[in-house]
Design a protein around this nucleic acid. Sequence first.
DNA 1: AATGAATGAGGCTTCATTCAT
DNA 2: GATGAATGAAGCCTCATTCAT
Lengths: 197, 197, 197, 197
Amino acid sequence: MARKSDSAKRAMLVEKALEVFGDRGFRGTTIKHIAARAGIAPGSVYTYFKDKNALFRSTLDEGWDDFLASLDELAASREPFARTLERLLATGFAELSKRLALVRGIVFEADRRDLLRGKIDELCRRIERIFAAARRQGTLRPVPDPAAWRAMLRVTVNGILFSAAAAPPGNVAGELRSLKAAVRGMVAARIGEETGI
Amino acid sequence: MARKSDSAKRAMLVEKALEVFGDRGFRGTTIKHIAARAGIAPGSVYTYFKDKNALFRSTLDEGWDDFLASLDELAASREPFARTLERLLATGFAELSKRLALVRGIVFEADRRDLLRGKIDELCRRIERIFAAARRQGTLRPVPDPAAWRAMLRVTVNGILFSAAAAPPGNVAGELRSLKAAVRGMVAARIGEETGI
Amino acid sequence: MARKSDSAKRAMLVEKALEVFGDRGFRGTTIKHIAARAGIAPGSVYTYFKDKNALFRSTLDEGWDDFLASLDELAASREPFARTLERLLATGFAELSKRLALVRGIVFEADRRDLLRGKIDELCRRIERIFAAARRQGTLRPVPDPAAWRAMLRVTVNGILFSAAAAPPGNVAGELRSLKAAVRGMVAARIGEETGI
Amino acid sequence: MARKSDSAKRAMLVEKALEVFGDRGFRGTTIKHIAARAGIAPGSVYTYFKDKNALFRSTLDEGWDDFLASLDELAASREPFARTLERLLATGFAELSKRLALVRGIVFEADRRDLLRGKIDELCRRIERIFAAARRQGTLRPVPDPAAWRAMLRVTVNGILFSAAAAPPGNVAGELRSLKAAVRGMVAARIGEETGI
DNA sequence: AATGAATGAGGCTTCATTCAT
DNA sequence: GATGAATGAAGCCTCATTCAT
C-alpha cells in the first residue's frame, strides 16, 4: 500500500472540517480552508470525500451520532430522577462543550433546515426516552399532555443549542456555565412538580 | 433630500431583500435574486446600498427595530400580569409570523454571531422591561435571582426563535401555533408562582 | 440599456468559439481560449451561454443550419442534372471552405457520436432531396436500389467531410481543390450512367 | 531485457488503453479509467509509459501497424483482381470490426490532425500497393490519372473509416455490413471499367 | 437614476503525475 | 516493480461590483 493506511487521516479531516464549518458555516467554508487546517493539499480532500457536501454530511452525521450515543447510557438506571437529571445535564453540557463546533455546524445552515430539524428531532427523541424510562420505572410522574410536554422539550433543547452556538468565542465556558444553571433552574421547578417532591 | 419615490423604493428593496435572505441565507442570496424579486436591475441595488453587506445589515436592523417597537407598547399598562402576558404572546407570535424571514435571516448566519447575539440581547432587554414594569407596578412579584431569571429568559427566547426559524415551509402556521401553546404552558407555571395567584 | 445591444456580440462569440472548437476540439478548448480569441473576459461568455456545452451546441447548430440552408436552393431547378451537380459541388465546397472550423467541430468529437451522426444525416438528407427532385423532373434516372445508393452517398459525404477536416492547416485550399476534383471524378462516372448519357 | 511477464503486461495495457481511448477519446480518458480496465494501479501505468501521450501514441501506432500488416498479404497474389478485391474487402472490414476502438481513437482527435493524416496516408499507401501490384501483374488495367485515382481512394477510405467510427454502439455490426455493401457497390462499377470486364 | 453587460477574483472539482511505502 | 494517496495546476462556473449608455 502507499504511504500511511489512513483511516486516521479521514478522521482527522472530519475533525478539522468540523471546526471550520462550525466557525464559518457551510457556504463560508472553502475546501482550501479545511485543507489548510488539516495540513493537506486541497485536492487531497477528495481522496476521502466525494465533494464538499459529502464532507459536510459526514462531519455532522458522525459527530451527532457520537453525541446522541453519549446520552443513551443515561436511560437505564433506577436512581431517583433528580440524579438522572443531574447526570443528563452534566453529560449534555460536557458534550455540548466538546462539540460546540458541531452544534454550530448543525444550527447555522439556512439552506438545510431539514437536516437541522432531523438532527434536533433525533436528539429530542433520545431525551424523551430518558424521561420515558424514568416514568416507566416510577421515578418520575407521568405528564398529563405528552404532546405539550414534547413541544416544551423542543423549545428548551432548541434554546440551549442555539444559545450555546451563539456564545461569544472568548467566553464559551462562562456562557455554558450560566446556560446550564439556567436550564437546571427551568427544569427543576417543573420536575419538582412532576416528581411530586 | 431624496425624493419620496426613492425612499419608497429603498423600503421596498429592504422588504424584498428580507424575504430572500430569510429563504436562502446571506451567502445563498445573490444580488440578482434580490433585484429580480424587487423588479429592478441588479446594478440599481447599489444606488441604495453600498454593498451586499450594507443591504443585509439594513434589512435586519430595520426589520428588527420594527419588531422591537411592537413590543414596547406592552410595557406601560397596569392590567393584571396574566393579561399582559397574553398580549405579549399574542403580539410576539403575530410578529414572529409576519417576520419569519427576518428571524431566519438573524438566526442562520454562522459568520455573524455577534450580530445575532446583539439582536437577541436587544429583544430580551425589551421583554425584561415589560416584566420589570409589571414588577414595579406590583402586578408581578419580584424574582429572587435576576441573573438566573434573565438566563432562563434568554434560553426560552432563543428556543422560540430558533424553533420558528427552523419550521418547515409547508407548515409554518401549525408550528407557530404549537410553539405558542408550548410557550404559554412553560411560562404559565412559573408566572403562576411568581404572581402568587 | 447598458452598453451595446449586442446580439452582434453573441454572433461574434459563436464565430470565434467555432474557430477554437474547430482547432482544438471540445475538450481541448477552454473558455479562456474562446474569451481571449473574442477579446472579452472569461466570465462574459456566460452572459450569452449557459455553459460550455450550450455554447458548443449553438455553435454547431447555427453554423450547420446555415450550411444546410445553402444547399436547399439547389433542389428546385429544371436544368440538366450535370449542371445541378456542378452547382452542388461549387456551393458545397465553397461552404466547406468557409466553414471548415465547423466541420472540424462536428467531425472530431468522440464523446458526441450521436450529435455527429445526426448532423451528417441531416446533410445527407438534403443532398438526397436534390437528387430526388432531379429524378422527379426527369433530369436524372431513378436508381435501382435506393438504400444502397443512400449508403454510398453517406460514405462519400463522410469521406469528404473527414478529408476536409483533416486537411493540413497550411494547404487547406489545395486540399479542397484536389478533393473537389476527386469527388467530381467519382460522381461523374456514376452520374454518367444514371443520366444515361 | 524486460522479463516476459512485463512485456505481456505492457501489451495488455496497450490493449485495454485502446478500448478506453476508443470509447472516450483521448481527453475523455483518464489514467484511472485505463488502470481500472487493466486491473492495475494508476501509478503502475508509468512503469510502462512515460506519460499519457506516450501511451496513446503507442496504442495507436502498434494497433495501426498490425492493421496495416494484415493488408500486406494481399499484395502478392496473381489471382483475378475481382478476387483480390473481395479479399481486400473481407480482410479490411474484418479488421475494421476488430479494431473499431483503434479507428475511433485515430479518427476523433481534433488536436492531432497530423497523426491522423499520417496514419491514413499509410493505409492508403498500402492499398495503393495492392492495386499497383495487380496492375504490374496485368490483372488490373492502369489508370489514366494516378493522382486523381489516389484522391478518390483517399475520400473513400476516409469515408469508410469515419462512417465506421461514428457507428452507433448498439448496431456496429449492422452498420459495418451495410457499409461494406455500399463500398462493394461503389468500387465494383469503377473496377468493372478498369478491369475491362 | 436606472440599466444590465462586463469583469475577474475566487470557489469547487478533476486528474496527470509523483513518490513513500 | 507495484501501489495508491498526495499534490497542485488548471478548468468550469458564479457573482459582487463597476460603469458605459
